[in-house]
Nucleic acid binder design. Structure first.
Length: 239
DNA sequence: CCCTGATTCGC
DNA sequence: GCGAATCAGG
């Protein structure tokens, strides 16, 4: 990895922001902390308060020295690292509120053909398969034009108490989660229709195959990773 | 140990 | 010019 103009600019910017050499190296990718420091010095960037050099003294000038009581006081220090905006935490109560209530009356046979979970964004011309709930009994896979399955499944003879309430017939609430169904969240906690994917979980994983594909991605060697897009200032720090 | 930046020096 | 190795303080 070479020092292109663009990378040098990013180095300068981050160095000026006060980021440590390690962080800069990590964000630039493909270079070590030492490389960053070395480059910064060659560029003549401002020195940082060095743990090794409290005041100023040159190794060569060691002979003289002695009489100096260096007014060392570099305290640029920390006032960063605080995210500009603290994400509101979802109160657990709010999540619980959206979980399936369990009213006494039960629906005869929930039609529930509505909203399939988050259809993936499709490029033009692509066929999007959708998993559509056919009620408490399961899901069918449908293409865009396809109609509801012709043979509606026989309604369950008896609904067990744990089964979903009408409004949650096609949604998976917090209380529906177990280790066999996909826990991929759809929507945001606190919103009325917040629910979970609910498809069959990929055995050994918390998500279905589709969402595992999103959640788990192969780690590329550093040099092959795409550097994060230019964030002029204060992008979210991922660590 | 971990972290930090500075410096050196072979390439 | 580059950066690993090394140094040295916190």
């Amino acid at each position: 990895m070479s020092w292109t103009d663009e990378r040098i600019e990013r180095l300068k910017a981050m160095w000026a922001e006060g980021k440590t050499a390690s962080v800069i190296a990590e964000e630039l990718g493909g270079v070590s902390r030492n490389a960053v420091i070395g480059k910064a010095h060659r560029l003549g960037l401002d020195s940082r308060p060095s743990p090794v050099k409290p005041g100023e003294d040159k190794p060569a000038a060691a002979a003289a020295a002695a009489s100096a009581a260096p007014a060392s006081a570099p305290a640029p220090a920390a006032e960063r690292a605080t995210p500009s905006k603290v994400r509101e935490k979802p109160p657990i109560a709010a999540i619980l509120e959206t979980a399936a209530p369990m009213p006494d009356d039960v629906p005869a046979a929930a039609p529930a053909a509505a909203a399939a979970p988050a259809a993936p964004a499709a490029k033009a011309g692509e066929t999007v398969m959708v998993y559509r709930s056919i009620g408490p009994g399961g899901f069918v896979r449908q293409g865009p034009g396809e109609q509801q399955a012709p043979i509606p499944p026989a309604p369950p003879r008896r609904l067990v108490p744990a089964k979903p309430a009408p409004e949650m017939a096609d949604k998976t609430g917090l209380l529906d989660l177990n280790d066999r169904i996909c826990k991929w969240p759809l929507g945001h906690p606190g919103e009325p229709d917040f629910h979970f994917c609910g498809q069959q979980a990929n055995p050994g994983y918390p998500y279905c195959v589709q969402h595992c594909g999103v959640a788990y991605q192969a780690q590329l060697p550093r040099r092959d990773r795409r550097p994060p897009p230019p964030l002029p200032y204060g992008g979210p720090r991922v660590r």
